[in-house]
Design a protein around this nucleic acid. Structure first.
Lengths: 223, 223
DNA sequence: CGGGGCTTTGAGAATCTTCAATTTAAGTGG
DNA sequence: CCACTTAAATTGAAGATTCTCAAAGCCCCG
């Protein structure tokens, strides 16, 4: 049975959607740049985007993967701290002018509550991400990453998901090398926990087995 | 010059404070337990607390350190996913009944805006934490941890901060072994980047040197 | 058919974990 | 005040894991 992720993303209300302007992006296109003013909130409608930073040593860090229903841009007034780019053609992102949204929230408690819940959803997702990145071994990281992805992405009839990102992106997301990602996936397949038709087509075979690679134990509906 | 942290914590407004009830905790006491309903928001007034989870393998993970001015408890309705305990005697935490706070927010846009900004502050802190935990080597993790702590904690005249947590806690926070924490600190001291009067009394000597162990580069006031 | 990106696999060097022992600091009770 | 006990912190060494550099295979697309 499908277990929905804790921080399950969702659609915007009509009120907020009325303020939004949607744009479409090709693979690699920048949705918002590092250092841009924090005057816009974003909502992913279709496709996927990644939040990126460049380290002092020239290395790239991916600090977030945004899938349909996810929000980003919820910063304090200091401006955006990283750039966001589309990872596939046809990605659609809705932009919401922050000032107008906040004015709307001031006049309508329902909207204020919605924004609050969107922010809480972001918090829940970040905490989940922190657990994934905070695992000790590469295999655990990759295992919990795949587990997380299989619940955030759409699954086809066979229970397969299509990873929107490359091994390199996964590596930058998990703070390990791309080779370690590849090796971990091979090992998980060898252990019979996952199945790969193609490199990016993943099916989880042993859900409870991979669950050990998921999270610390906490109350949740079983299987 | 002191650089304030991105997600700088702050005091509550009078309106929210009026709803709060403060309690004092000794070292190790539980502020809120895993699996408790998500009906309370918390605000650390004094001392420090840690957010803990227990992994499937019995290992403990510390998924957050809460210092004065920090909030926690901003979850969706699913209930708390981890426990929070005091890490020192005399820790004071304010509890805010969520229901009453949300009703207040519904009637007063100023309060709604404050809660929103508190949530955005939590988001900023989680992203910072993600960068720290997401560093590759143990030395980088410890270096950026100390950098982060030196900006979140009060500094005395000599620029020293007193770490509220043990090496073991730091290890669980950074997802490395306690020995690696100790070794990294020794090496950072050997490199002349920090100074240790006592094991938990840290002074950063070479701020720009340790900055390399801090964050990916992004716009920020210099030094 | 060739080029380029993505993925996988191999081997040596570097790092980390684990287990163990030692040192230091902090209480406790006489 | 001192001996004793306990927790915290440091250091050492062997084993395991990962990173880096390198090479090879795969696949799409021009």
């Amino acid at each position: 049975m499908a277990v929905q992720n804790t921080g399950s993303a969702r659609d915007l209300s009509k009120q907020l959607s009325a303020l939004a302007m949607t744009s479409q992006y090709d693979k690699g296109e920048e949705v918002c740049g590092q250092g841009e003013p924090a005057d816009t909130w974003y909502h992913v409608v279709k496709g996927a985007t990644r939040r990126c930073m460049v380290c002092a040593d020239g290395r790239r860090r991916i600090v977030g993967l945004l899938l349909p229903g996810d929000c980003f841009g919820f910063t304090l007034n200091r401006g955006s701290d990283c750039s966001v780019e589309s990872v596939m053609d046809g990605t659609i992102v809705a932009s919401i002018p922050r000032r107008r949204a906040e004015m709307l929230a001031d006049s309508d408690p329902i909207v204020a509550r919605e924004i609050r819940e969107l922010a809480f959803t972001v918090i829940a997702q970040l905490q989940t991400q922190l657990l994934v990145v905070g695992r000790t071994t590469a295999r655990e990281k990759v295992g919990s990453f795949l587990f997380e992805m299989s619940h955030r992405l759409e699954r086809d009839d066979g229970g397969r998901v299509v990873l929107p990102v490359s091994r390199y992106d996964i590596a930058d997301y998990l703070a390990i090398s791309a080779e370690a990602v590849s090796r971990s996936i091979s090992r998980l397949r060898g252990l019979g926990l996952i199945n790969l038709a193609e490199p990016r087509h993943v099916r989880i075979l042993n859900n409870s087995g991979l669950r050990n690679y998921e999270h610390p134990v906490h109350p949740r509906a079983s299987t």
